[in-house]
Design a protein around this nucleic acid. Structure first.
Lengths: 209, 209, 209, 209
DNA sequence: AATGAATGAGCTTTCATTCAT
DNA sequence: TATGAATGAAAGCTCATTCAT
């Protein structure tokens, strides 16, 4: 009993440290870029000592992979939450998901920079690609099925759920680039309006003026 | 005269070497990623010796910046060419520009990987940001004015040129991400159809069935 | 009384732990080599935790020295046992000592590897040298006095006890090297025959055909 | 022609640097031991900079292997020279080879320490084992065939060439241990006398008083 | 007495940069 | 202009040692 409690506690502590280091890693990547982030930076950011990262993650490569995993999981969690907390109809859900991507806490330069840092390495790191692809697919699948529901409900013609999903998925990712690259001129309100304009165009009965 | 001719020749040679090294850099970045590309890799890829990069570019930082410049200039050149070679109407031009972004020679994993490699460093390198931003702005401005022309011509209502530009710009960038991340499932034909579906929705008279 | 018994028990436990760790050390050295043996390896081999070695030996250096001490003591103990258990004559004793060195339990690659691991560090570690030297001297002195007895008994001429001791001592050490380096071709039976052939040559009346 | 000469020069320089670094390595191993020899030590000993070893040997492991190779080759070269420079008879040759092993330039604590440093790692490094084994075999084969010649010439009975080779090979290796461990009491003259006494015993007509 | 998380010095290795040729 | 040997700073990683539990 005591031993079990002790182990549970220990495991919890370990997990906490890992989280702490992953957080520090994201901060460093956002601030200095992936290429210039050293293990010493990460440890320093976490207020811990040199060897700590290798103690908890074995290697830098592993730390980065785990960080990406965490990033993707965190995103999915917020995605699911937004999906569930929204109104019951597919249009409401779709809107909620898009709003999520443009929400300041997500579509934030520092956060987005981390995503782009990983995307920048995707070509040469199959592991990163897989994780990123999975998140993208997850998003795309749900958006597509929501679009399908809407199309069925509204009897829309000349639109396919697949195309809508492609447009929305690529748009949200592309908007993140604007947020990253043009922080001065990027305007999340205008971006939202652009998306809404698109949705009104394709699904006029579900997204009225 | 002779001296001038000699200088011109010399300058041309220099420029040729620089191009050769920039090409090698892009190949390396595409293959190994930005973080793992060393000057030795670049020199090796170009079939030249160790010190060559510093001889022609002074520093690695400089080489990368010049590479990005080259990438952006090359893009703009093709962009302008596509613009000019297309039919005279704004709708034709708009379509030509979007087709450019999805053309196999541009929307190619290796090419796109280089763009993402730089975007991944944008947050921590203001110089990169500026170059990328400029290209984006250039694209966006032209797309927006084309949209404006189309709206005026067609008397479309409920659509703003700004929104259309946002949608199209972010979409094309976002589609590159799919090309990079999901090379298996990304289908440039479906992507083109999705864009067309969008354009038909907003500009039905300019993009008929 | 009770306290004394408790102390004795405690001391015994401590001693047992130290033995356990020394055994683990020898196993590790044999398997991974001295340079690659870490305290974590030793603790792991003993089935105990990280800090255990420093708790019982203060430092790695100390652990190694104690291990060598143990190795030497163990050898001497077996040496003395072999000496005492053999027949009463000097020739019998001499033979028993040589047989000991070639006995599978002693002239075993893993055991021998540990000796060589320490000999490999002797030049730069006076402490090791001293311990090794003492064992060698111990062996040499006894072998020399046995040779002297045999020479006196047999009235052998043209032979000195000192030379015989040199030959036998260096030979047994050298045979260990063969055991270590040529485990495939080393043949302890042939080795024993070679030694016997030598002894028959110098002491024909004590070691008849 | 010029290019070839340049390349030859360059190759020669490279080889010279490698030799210089191998020499430094042996000095360091002799002085500090194998486990405590760092690449910085080696570079320092050679009067060169930090990165030099990896430039010429890729890794520390590789440096050590090459050092052992060099050690073995050098030994064989001296062995062959001693063999050839000695008188024509097998007994003279045998004596020359043994004298070589006890010669101050070979049976020197610093030199011997390097051999033992490698022997100490043999068990856990198959590569080292192979190199050491080969040298040993080389020695043993030649000693055995010389012994065979002597036996045939002298018509000696009760002796086998194999046994003589085992005795002499193991003895010379074992004497190196004495040289290493008991530098105070080891006496190369007495050692030589012991070997001679042995040879006189087995081959009395070839090695008369 | 024992654990194992944490430290930090020190190691090997990498690599941009320099420079004699 | 081009080479490639050499440098040395800085990185990732290892591990003996410490210490709160």
């Amino acid at each position: 009993m005591v031993a079990t409690a002790g182990n549970a506690k220990r495991t919890a502590r370990r997990e906490q440290r890992r989280r702490q280091l992953i957080d520090a890693t994201m901060k460093c990547i956002a601030r200095k870029g992936m290429g210039s982030t050293t293990l010493a930076d990460v440890a320093g950011e976490a207020g811990l000592s040199q060897g700590i990262v290798n103690l908890h993650f074995e290697s830098k490569e592993n730390l980065l992979t785990e960080t990406l995993h965490h990033l993707a999981d965190e995103y999915k969690a917020q995605f699911n939450k937004a999906y569930e907390n929204s109104g019951p109809g597919p249009a409401e859900k779709l809107l909620a998901l898009i709003e999520l991507d443009l929400r300041p806490s997500i579509c934030d330069r520092r956060k987005v920079a981390v995503w782009f840092a990983f995307w920048g390495e995707v070509k040469s790191r199959p592991t990163y690609r897989k994780i990123c692809d999975e998140r993208d697919q997850y998003y795309d699948d749900i958006v597509e099925s929501l679009a399908r529901e809407i199309i069925t409900e509204g009897g829309y013609e000349g639109v396919t759920a697949e195309s809508v999903a492609i447009v929305l998925t690529s748009m949200t990712n592309g908007l993140w680039l604007s947020c990253l690259i043009s922080p001065g001129s990027f305007d999340r309100h205008k971006a939202m309006l652009a998306v809404l304009e698109y949705l009104r165009g394709v699904f006029p009965r579900h997204f009225p003026q």
